[in-house]
Design a protein around this nucleic acid. Structure first.
Length: 501
RNA sequence: GGCGCAUUGGUGUAGUCGGUUAACACGCAGCCCUCUCAAGGCUGAGACCACGGGUUCGAGCCCCGUAUGCGCUGCCA
């Protein structure tokens, strides 16, 4: 039987990092087993669902390269089928009408309210005490016909327990006494989550459900539904949650854009790198290999490799250098410096375009120069953003001078103000304008001034690139060319704010 | 409150049928390389494997308890 799995996000916000990982795992599982990866948008909560969210989820998945098979299923389109299923269960006596008037829940602090109520009841709550549970059919029918509103609840058995085999957490059991008679259909006829999920999973022929561990207890209710509906239940695999530092829940409200997939795209992450990073949160190939491309990941992925404890996504909101997980940043840098140049170029192009630094010549007569530039500077960069910030001097004459570069490499030796233009004159005469000849010229110049080569080279770097760090100075000089280099060395721009030391 | 799940260095993870100096990666410190910074190479700090009891000649691995965290407990998803 071919495996069919699905990713089923509710469109109530952007694509959350945890959801993205769930999608990834589903995708990997499907591809590893030659199965189908389906997408279902769970938009049954009309109040909170938005098209904007759906678009953002789709964008995030496309960015990560998670292509789904078959048409997207919108859960709201199936509402009528869900209702029919509930009615069928009612007909068969497996569900009952509950005429209790709907309690108005203010959705503010609803979680706390529920927990509070549960605490007050203690552990003695009898899940089978609904007065309408055993209402005679005739009376129930009569009240319904008279127009009285009712919800439909599943009639959970008096004794017994549900059980299922979880591929990650092992055998799971739950006594019926712990499961309430869950509402299937709201009194306004609106089908609820558990019913909708089960109906759709059956309809879509889902064979394995891979989802967050927060659904582990929901699964027992769904197992009951599969049984009532006479359907065979799929395999289940619950994946551990991704938490914020300190083991707290990673939430949009508290942690902001750090949890959104789009943030990483917008902040210059390589999709392959981020995908690689989140794959390793809660899953391991059980080898020392960490850098994996998609085909390798697909090849190595198994449910057995998923572990049970939740992972912490590390970051420090107060430290700009650690705005997101260290390892994610490292991995992105690793990808930037080792990926095929041909794959990196379009990404750099997009970044330069958005920073208004892109010139069409880079794809035409300056193509080779552009490629060499990217290759020259990429090894020190962490994100694509660095190409337009730290790397700005390579693409524009209008760049800023880094404060450290100014103080450490220029202002410390005031004579450099005269020396640099002199160095420019010297370089002017270098022919051919190549690495070794340039190095010889700079060394000679340093010797004449009786200073270390490093002093001159670092000063030149500051004046030419605005940075205190970067590639070999001689390579940079050769690469940028005589014209730009001499102009920048003669320019007094860097000394504008010099106030003496 | 009840029920469920989890617990290996700061973080992500390895640890086969119980016998290891508890491994790898990120991060951190130092050294080498060097015109700087990365990269690379080398070295180091950091975990009595949450805690307490068992079982055993021997436990990170098995059992029980406790603590902590998380999840569920809704006519939300």
């Amino acid at each position: 039987m071919t495996e069919r799995v699905r990713f089923a996000p509710s469109p109530t916000g952007y694509l959350h990092i945890g959801a993205a990982r769930t999608a990834l795992f589903n995708y990997l599982y499907a591809r590893h087993n030659g199965g189908k990866f389906l997408l279902r948008i769970e938009d049954t909560d009309l109040q909170r669902s938005t098209d904007e969210s759906t678009r953002s989820i789709l964008e995030g998945m496309a960015w990560l390269g998670l292509e789904y098979d078959e048409e997207i299923v919108f859960q709201s389109d199936n509402a009528e089928k869900h209702r029919q299923a509930a009615l069928k269960l009612l007909e068969e006596g497996k569900a009952y009408r509950d005429f209790t008037p709907k309690a108005e829940n203010s959705d503010k602090n609803i979680k706390e309210a529920i927990a509070e109520r549960a605490r007050a009841q203690g552990g003695d709550k009898n899940m089978r005490d609904n007065p309408f549970r055993d209402l005679p059919k005739e009376e129930s029918d009569a009240r319904a016909e008279s127009g009285e509103l009712f919800a439909i609840r599943l009639k959970v058995g008096e004794t017994g327990k549900t059980s299922f085999e979880d591929a990650v957490y092992g055998t799971q059991e739950r006594d019926y006494s712990e499961i309430e008679d869950l509402v299937l259909l709201r009194s306004d006829g609106h089908p609820l989550y558990n019913l909708a999920v089960v109906c759709d999973d059956i309809e879509m022929g889902i064979t394995t459900v891979i989802r967050g561990q927060d659904h582990l207890t929901n699964t027992h209710k769904q197992v009951l539904l599969y049984e009532a509906l006479g359907a065979t239940k799929p395999k289940f695999a619950h994946v551990p949650l991704i938490l914020a530092p300190g083991g707290k829940k990673l939430s949009k409200r508290i942690h902001g854009p750090i949890v959104s997939m789009t943030t990483y795209r917008d902040e210059g992450f390589i999709a392959a790198a981020f995908r690689n990073f989140i794959a390793l949160l809660g899953w391991s190939p059980k080898t020392d290999q960490e850098i994996m491309n998609l085909p390798e990941m697909i090849d190595l992925f198994t449910l057995e490799g998923i572990n049970r404890s939740s992972a912490i996504f590390n970051f420090d909101a107060n430290n700009p250098k650690r705005w997101t997980d260290d390892k994610a940043l490292w991995m992105n840098a690793e990808y930037i410096r080792t990926m095929f140049l041909g794959e990196l170029l379009p990404l750099v192009k997009a970044e330069l375009k958005s920073a208004k630094l892109w010139r069409e010549e880079y794809e035409d007569e300056d193509r080779v120069w552009f490629e060499k530039t990217v290759d020259l500077i990429r090894s020190r960069f962490f994100t694509l953003k660095d190409f337009s910030s730290q790397g700005r001097a390579y693409f524009s004459e209008d760049f800023d001078f880094d404060e450290t570069a100014l103080k450490k490499n220029l202002y410390k030796e005031p004579k450099l103000r005269e020396w640099l233009p002199e160095l420019a004159d010297k370089l002017e005469a270098v022919e051919p304008f190549e690495h070794d000849a340039i190095q010889a010229a700079v060394s000679q110049f340093a010797e004449e001034k009786a200073v270390k080569v490093g002093l001159v080279a670092n000063a030149a770097r500051a004046a030419i690139t605005g940075q205190s760090v970067g590639a070999s100075m001689f390579e940079i000089i050769e690469h940028l060319g005589k014209m730009r280099v001499t102009n920048r060395l003669r320019s007094q721009l860097a000394w504008q704010n010099y106030q003496g030391e």
